[in-house]
Write a protein that binds this DNA or RNA. Structure first.
Lengths: 122, 122
DNA sequence: TTCGAAATTCAATGATCGTTGAAATAAACC
DNA sequence: GGTTTATTTCAACGATCATTGAATTTCGAA
């Protein structure tokens, strides 16, 4: 269980952040994460509507290595969240306008509401 | 003299914008453009400190095709500017925080002050 | 009309990208 | 132990990328 690498936020370069955002699936993940991060119900397997498991794993790694998301390991599951505070400290205002921008694109892949608010361990 | 293609701002997708921003040279161009756009002294050949002419041409096209910059043709010269108003209408706040973000990266290639404020046809 | 400057185009390169499907890990549960 | 579930890793593919240098286009000026 190697503990998953997260870059120090100070080591993240703007060009790397933008590269990580330059993909529709990753923007779809980001939109979904922005709508669910409060309840931390963002398990990786909840995103299977967006891509196959192996492709998701690839995209999750891109977001994580670019410093955009954090991945918490718990048993065999992984939970994602946006590194909002750190991103705001390093790039003030950026992540909010990025999310707003992504949100406005109707062509981005999306998770239905059943994935965002549903209870699954009730 | 084909009139240079500029995409309608409504046809620009967020992922394309981010892809265009995912390069240090293009971010360097954007920073320089942001500091000089008032006086429209942003002729293409002013950027030769950032890359060779042919490579610059390539990067200019990327920025233009992503809807980020506008290119005005005048004789054999071309003048660049950021499509601020249109970008703000389509993606409110985005371009400002992108520029702020780029500005903070000390590792991005930059134009010296002699290129930004100097008079060259005196 | 020839010359020179500004910029683009083209072909070629090696690198990285997104995607697939199969195989490997790794923890949880019987 | 053996099985199931969650996720990653790996090898492969075609596509796109950034970069180079040489050739070309386009216009202004002498």
């Amino acid at each position: 269980m190697k503990p998953v690498f997260h870059p120090d936020i100070e080591d993240v370069a703007p060009a790397d952040v933008f590269a990580a955002l330059a993909d529709p699936i990753r923007l779809g993940i980001l939109i979904a994460l922005a709508e669910v991060s409060e309840v931390d119900k963002a398990r990786c397997s909840h995103f299977t509507a967006l891509a196959s498991p192996s492709l998701l794993s690839y995209h999750f790694a891109k977001l994580r290595e670019a410093g955009i998301t954090r991945m918490r390991v718990e048993g065999t599951s992984r939970y994602l969240s946006i590194r909002r505070d750190e991103l705001n400290q390093r790039f003030p205002g950026l992540i909010a306008s990025v999310i707003e921008t992504a949100r406005r694109d109707p062509n981005l892949p999306r998770l239905g509401p059943e994935w965002l608010s549903g209870s699954d361990e009730a």
